[in-house]
Design a protein around this nucleic acid. Sequence first.
DNA 1: GCGGCTTACTGTCAATTGGACAATAAGCTA
DNA 2: TAGCTTATTGTCCAATTGACAGTAAGCCGC
Lengths: 224, 224
Amino acid sequence: MVTVDLVILTLRAGELNALLVERGVEPYQGEMALPGGFLNNGEEDLQVAAHRELAEEAGLDGASLHLEQLGVYGTPGRDPRGRVVSVAYLAIAPGLPEPAAGTDAAGARWQPVGAVAAGKVRLAFDHELILNDGVERARAKLEHTALATAFCGETFTISELQRVYEAVWGVEIDPRNFYRKVQGVEGFIVPDGHKATRGRPARLFRAGRSAALHPPLVRPEGAT
Amino acid sequence: MVTVDLVILTLRAGELNALLVERGVEPYQGEMALPGGFLNNGEEDLQVAAHRELAEEAGLDGASLHLEQLGVYGTPGRDPRGRVVSVAYLAIAPGLPEPAAGTDAAGARWQPVGAVAAGKVRLAFDHELILNDGVERARAKLEHTALATAFCGETFTISELQRVYEAVWGVEIDPRNFYRKVQGVEGFIVPDGHKATRGRPARLFRAGRSAALHPPLVRPEGAT
DNA sequence: GCGGCTTACTGTCAATTGGACAATAAGCTA
DNA sequence: TAGCTTATTGTCCAATTGACAGTAAGCCGC
């Protein structure tokens, strides 16, 4: 018995959010949980299954967003139905305004991860643990990979990128130093036009060629 | 069908080595593979299973060494016997002189990972991929965690610690700068006596309280 | 069309860090 | 006691970082 569960993170109103669904069946009926489900019988690749759940349960097109394996959770007793091993995936989505409604995925809601961490929202199974692991993974990877760009659209301004770091790390960053540092990292972002906003128009960028950041953007010591 | 496979790394003669076993049964009989095996039927915790395999197949006492989950490998066709999902674990052992013989684990041999990467040693299943993932994980974690101390014994000198970094990263490091930097990281290592060697006696250290390194020891750009 | 508002971007400076390298220390051995 | 070996402490300069000031470029309201 193998399931695939998804930690899907995005930025909404400057806050880090995760996609949660309300369970329609027992066990834990009516409670919030990570989207996910059982492997299709037989020969389904894990990554493919994660993409399928992403589409079915979250209504998201997996092809365009970041998806990586997070880990396996197999503690006996974690699922009252018996021995269930869950493979967790971490997905990063650009800030979509729609509350992920529509298709199959009614009952899917973005929730601030801060509310879950503070105990305001309880999750079924060991999904709280999995969600925390996913958030911590994202925090760590922001330091030395270009993961932050996955939170943004195709193009983005440096301010938008900065808001990603601030939301995920839970810190404030000086915009001027951030600007300098980000542009100093070879292959992180490349210019791509301009954009009108309130105030002076901002330069637009796309994700560059490098997946790894040299030098890394080191997280301040007290970060969440 | 769930198996647990182990990437066990250690330092031998200044080189990064992995523990490999010769398979005694089909498939891939006679070829080298990572130590591992099927989950005990029913209710065995994954981490417990990893410890069990560590003792059975490698003759190593799991309690004392670093063990962390590496990932899941579930591509259809990776095992000719059918659908087998493998949970990989990464273990780090201090440099043991014994070639891991003795008990159950005959046919277990330390092999330089460089020989595997160079194609001189071929591995069964997708174990070459898993081994590479394990080595890359170790390389990354050396930067911002105290993982390097897991390669050393209870106490160690700074030179020994340096040799860990050099072997895993495949670079040369200036001893004087390394000395300074390592001691500047709060809680990384704490003094613990002295040790006579050839040349001037070295100070001994133990692993400190911190698991995370602030500031990190950044890997040079061209590292392996 | 001109202040004032907002956001974007460019500079500057002192303090810290980092890499290259020289010098000294402390044991052992012959 | 000289010489070898490894450990540890310093020094110097270049590069980086963090704190902060100043300028630029749109839009809005009048």
